[in-house]
Nucleic acid binder design. Structure first.
Lengths: 213, 213, 213, 213
DNA sequence: CATGAATGAGGTTTCATTCAT
DNA sequence: TATGAATGAAACCTCATTCAT
């Protein structure tokens, strides 16, 4: 009997989380189609196949929905980042894996990144500006981690002697530039080729002992 | 008599243009402060010291005001760009001058810039923020011109053999990253030093024949 | 076996009544805090530690809850009124006891009182705040009873010859005025003293044969 | 020419004020019909024969409309009060005139008083609590003035020796009680009779040297 | 009976745009 | 051309009530 109750509560809670997720996914789709200001709560509700009021049982405002969409993407990204990038021993490989991850990830959420870049003034220039509170922590963690990789690379002699934090900023700037560009124009080359090109261009530029071009 | 009429019309026309300009400048300030959606026509009117109705004698919509603001900023930037950067013969110097221009320009018109680079390439998501046709042309011209400089540099052997367009993307990304960073934290070094550092870091990385670090 | 059923039903029924009472008490607290329109069923449910749906198993609407709260308060007050005031033989003493009751009651249950005396006679304006039938009867009974006391006092020569209904109105007005005053400024004198002062001031004014001041 | 401009501006301003007044009057009517919570801005707009948005050019919220309705009534009242009551030399006459004014005034705005008493909890007990900011000052002025009258009456021997402030509170309480009562049940006696009765009952009770009843 | 997620009508408020003066 | 009051569509959000479990 307690078991059944437990299972029941478990199911209810599971359903609630499922609905929450469905709403967030619907919200992401609508934000992608219409942008933050263009999206209406009404439309998100229709997309999620819930009534408007229901959304407000999960999120207290449209703004919070937006924030959570970003948060979800950021969390997912960080989860993979920590597993696929931070586990690498050699800095060069870590940066290579990060380039790949960032580009692949972007491909999956391309539409939303477009929204993100456009929504908040300053966001393309300074993503941390447009982020919801919870997200800023994640972003800082990410920046620190990447800086750590560069630091290690400089120390162990893999990379030229450069300020690791400057390297991180350049890295982010470059990736963002490409991501922003490809969010507007359909890329002409397949993802793999683009990844390799950026790896070459970036890592090649900072790697110690490279031959002169 | 005809003379007087001519003078009068001339004055009237001059005044009209002056008002138009004042309105655009007010609009720019407000868009910079509030972003496109946050700005209200009412606020722009107050800033311009005109009545709302008057604005609609010059522009058919808020959207058009926005488009013209962007256009003006882009034109101003491009005007200086063509004179101070494109006139250089040697690619390395041109890029150096561009770095200087972008950083100086940013320091003087940081709000300015935000609007320009934010909106830049026109959105498919939020039509109201899409760049006006004319402006997209300007932006493309800028990108092409910069790409041209890199192209020349690669061809004449100043720079390593890299895809010039990729170089442009990287260049923009890096500049944006620094600009973003300095817009959050007051720079510790004077502008001149910062300019030199970036010149070294960026140009140094792509210049042929550089010594190993 | 039938016994056990009977006991069970008895317990169930007792529990049901207990829950009903708990809900009403919670509702009263919330109505006192927020007023009718400010109170939400959600908040009442939380206060009562039941789910919203449960409340609707006992009352068919928020309006009915409100009506029952009023009714309960009115009944409680009237219960004491009839025992402590109406039992007095001499009008002067009855009015004195009523003064004491109203002031003490107010001190103990000031939120309480507000609901009763505020809402009192039912609104033609805001149907949702109209008193339930039963309650209007109670209030009228109260007014009638007080008027009756004055009537008796006038007739038996205790009070000056005045319209008893007018006296009731004056009495209510004066009590309310003091109560209001003391609800703003902490009284400087203890309750007993205040009670005596009002007795003197009010009864003294209407008592036959008083000395000139 | 400047004259014409002046007249024009004057007319515009006059019209604006007229519209403001019309809206307030419409609002009063709707509040009277439906109560504060029952009234919708939409309905007020229809009653005033303006679009909804127009109301918001004059008042920033429904709440402010309500506050201004009260303020207008209070100001009008004070205006007459100062002319018809404060000008009397003898305290007894002044109080008599005040009773008449309060009752007559109430007759004109009866509906609104009903709303007022019902809208804010505690308003019948302590009207000053429910008043908008601007109004509180007016109310204080009124209370002071009335207290002054009683003070003068006590000093010159017209009234019994009683605390003038207590007298004011009793006076207000009594008037409010009647007003509240008659806002619910149609009075059975004509206004004149009621005025005289209250004059007798109240002034008669506090006048020095009255004969025993 | 207890639960609480789902509902959706309806409220207040904003603001780009128009138009009579 | 300059004005700014008037417009009204449309947005976000609340909350009493229902109902499947």
């Amino acid at each position: 009997m307690p078991d059944e109750v437990a299972r029941k509560l478990g199911r209810k809670e599971r359903e609630r989380q499922a609905h929450r997720r469905e709403i967030l996914e619907a919200a992401e789709r609508v934000f992608v189609r219409k942008g933050y200001h263009g999206a209406t709560v009404e439309e998100i509700a229709q997309e999620a196949e819930f009534a408007v009021g229901t959304l407000y049982n999960f999120f207290k405002s449209k703004e919070q929905m937006y924030a959570e969409v970003i948060l979800k993407i950021a969390e997912d990204f960080l989860y993979v980042f920590e597993r696929q990038v931070l586990t690498r021993d050699r800095p060069q490989e870590a940066i290579g894996a990060l380039i790949e991850l960032r580009l692949r990830y972007f491909d999956d959420h391309r539409g939303f990144f477009r929204v993100f870049f456009e929504t908040s003034p300053g966001s393309r220039i300074d993503p941390s500006r447009a982020l919801p509170r919870d997200c800023v922590g994640l972003y800082d963690r990410y920046v620190e981690a990447v800086t750590g990789i560069f630091d290690q690379g400089v120390k162990d002699g893999s990379f030229d002697t450069l300020d690791p934090f400057y390297l991180t900023m350049c890295f982010e700037g470059i990736i963002n530039a490409f991501v922003a560009y490809w969010s507007r124009r359909e890329p002409t080359e397949p993802l793999d080729v683009r990844i390799e090109k950026i790896k070459d261009a970036f890592i090649g530029r900072i790697r110690v002992g490279r031959a002169h071009a």
